[in-house]
Amino acid sequence: QGDIVVALYPYDGIHPDDLSFKKGEKMKVLEEHGEWWKAKSLLTKKEGFIPSNYVAKLN
């Protein structure tokens, strides 16, 4: 089961498979690959890669 993270900063995706998000948006982490994680937005239901240093895990 994936962790839920919250965006600390907004992110505008650079690549087509990036997931753009707004500050405060919550996402479910699907896979962790070093600095880039695959996640699904709980708001938009879209999936893509996010920079892990832009988010914090919720406990």
Rank of each mutant, 00 (worst) to 15 (best):
Q1P: 13
Q1H: 11
Q1G: 12
G2L: 10
G2A: 10
G2P: 08
D3L: 15
I4H: 05
I4K: 03
V5S: 02
V5M: 05
V6P: 00
V6Q: 07
A7T: 03
A7P: 00
A7F: 00
A7Q: 00
A7S: 05
A7H: 01
L8W: 04
Y9T: 06
Y9N: 05
Y9D: 03
P10D: 15
P10M: 08
Y11W: 15
Y11E: 00
Y11N: 02
D12Y: 13
G13C: 06
G13K: 07
G13E: 04
P16Q: 08
D17A: 11
D17I: 07
D18K: 10
L19Q: 01
L19G: 00
L19P: 01
F21R: 00
K22C: 09
K22S: 10
K23C: 11
K23F: 07
K23D: 05
K23M: 08
K23W: 07
K23V: 10
G24T: 02
G24Y: 06
E25W: 04
E25G: 00
E25M: 02
K26R: 13
K26L: 15
M27Y: 01
M27Q: 01
K28A: 10
V29T: 04
L30K: 04
L30E: 04
E31F: 09
E32L: 14
E32W: 11
E32Q: 13
H33Q: 10
G34F: 04
G34Y: 04
G34N: 06
E35Y: 15
E35P: 11
E35F: 15
W36Y: 11
W36Q: 08
W36A: 06
W37N: 05
A39N: 01
K40E: 11
S41F: 01
S41I: 04
S41K: 05
S41W: 03
L42W: 04
L42D: 03
L42Y: 07
T44Q: 04
T44Y: 02
T44D: 05
K45F: 14
K45Y: 13
K46H: 08
K46F: 06
E47A: 08
E47F: 07
E47I: 14
E47S: 12
E47N: 05
G48K: 03
F49L: 12
F49W: 14
F49T: 06
F49D: 04
I50Y: 01
I50C: 02
P51N: 05
S52L: 06
S52H: 09
S52W: 09
S52E: 05
S52Q: 10
N53T: 13
N53R: 14
N53G: 13
N53K: 13
V55S: 01
A56G: 07
K57R: 14
K57T: 09
L58P: 07
L58Q: 08
L58S: 08
L58F: 10
N59P: 15
N59S: 13
